[in-house]
């Protein structure tokens, strides 16, 4: 068991290091932030001086080694633009990202799973068609567009919810929905498949033949047996939501990591981008690891011996 965890961590470490290295060099191909920092009309000498003070006059390899050394001591560096430690920025943004992720997951799991189960149980009937339509609709709209439609409807015209910000729970509603719609479809889909799969198995048929009500079968057996694919997808989706909510966060002015990352890319504030990606990598590894361990809890037959997928 612990060998398995160690191995997974080692693999994840390699992947994260690879990602950070790739980003380090690709980002530096895009230039540096000096030109964005100086006001209009700055002289070439001043620009060169500022560049040197930020360390961009050093050879790329030296910059990279310095970055690795800092990373080894958990020093994420200073923001070039804001002049504050990247840790401060990261830590202030993470709570918002977690809130939004939780909101989106609550919506997508909370609605997606039952919809999926219902679709499986009511296969071929009108309710299935209806839910299918709902799910497909959510899946077929660009996030920014459904977001804008919501802002116009719920904020501007109905005045139910604030259009932007993060100062109250109400602010969380629209971003969560916008972000959760896509994931909702995925969960509904996974739940439906899993339930259909189980429904075809002998034990369910036997139980039904014995006259056990369908509802009880669902909650007794199906829930547990369908949990594995759901956990797999959930782990993947959470790690995506954590750092990938760029558009929703920009639109709703939600101060999460996605927004700060995109702004940092535009501002060439490399340390922030690196830190967000690092967080994303850690989160995705963490989620997958938890998923792996949950498999064992849900289904004791699964034993981690180091070779598990």
């Amino acid at each position: 068991m612990s060998r398995f965890i160690l191995k997974r961590c080692w693999q994840a470490f390699i992947a994260a290091l690879g990602a950070l290295t790739l980003l380090f060099f690709v980002q530096r191909l895009t230039g540096d932030p000096t030109l964005l920092l100086v006001p209009e009309g700055a002289t070439a000498e001043d620009i060169a001086m500022l560049r040197a003070s930020l360390g961009f006059d050093q050879p790329l390899l030296v910059q990279y080694l310095r970055y690795l050394k800092d990373l080894g001591t958990f020093n994420l560096g200073m923001s070039y633009v804001q002049g504050v430690p990247v840790w401060d920025i990261l830590l202030s943004r993470i709570p918002y990202t977690l809130q939004l992720t939780a909101g989106a997951m609550l919506l997508s799991l909370g609605l997606g799973l039952p919809i999926g189960v219902l679709m499986a149980l009511q296969r071929g009937t009108l309710p299935e068609r209806f839910f299918q339509a709902v799910v497909f609709t959510g899946q077929s709209m660009p996030t920014f567009f459904s977001g804008i439609l919501m802002i116009l409807l719920f904020a501007v015209h109905l005045r139910w919810l604030p259009a932007s910000g993060s100062d109250s729970g109400a602010s969380l509603v629209m971003p969560s929905i916008a972000l959760g719609l896509l994931t909702l479809a995925t969960f509904a889909r996974v739940a439906r498949t899993a339930v259909l799969d189980e429904l075809g198995k002998d034990y369910v048929r036997t139980a039904r033949a014995k006259g056990v009500p369908l509802g009880r079968i669902v909650w007794r057996h199906l829930a547990r047996n369908s949990a594995i694919p759901v956990i797999t997808v959930a782990a993947l989706e959470i790690s995506h939501l954590l750092a990938g909510a760029v558009i929703v966060e920009t639109l709703f002015a939600w101060p999460g990591l996605g927004q700060v990352a995109v702004q940092a890319i535009e501002a060439r504030d490399f340390p922030i981008v690196q830190a967000v990606v690092l967080f994303g990598a850690v989160a995705s590894v963490g989620c997958n690891l938890i998923a792996d361990l949950l498999y064992g809890v849900v289904d004791p037959r699964i034993r981690h011996t180091g070779g598990a997928q």
């Binding site: 693999q11 994840a12 390699i14 992947a15 994260a16 690879g18 990602a19 790739l22 980003l23 690709v26 980002q27 895009t30 993947l236 790690s239 995506h240 750092a243 990938g244 760029v246 558009i247 996605g258 990352a261 995109v262 890319i265 981008v273 967000v276 990606v277 994303g280 990598a281 995705s284 590894v285």
Partner: peptide, 19 residues
């Protein structure tokens, strides 16, 4: 497989914006 892990650990949209 490590390459796949690596790509998955970078949020796709961020990678796209940088590229």
């Amino acid at each position: 497989m490590r390459l796949v892990d690596m790509m998955l650990s970078i949020p796709a949209l961020l990678f796209a914006v940088i590229t």
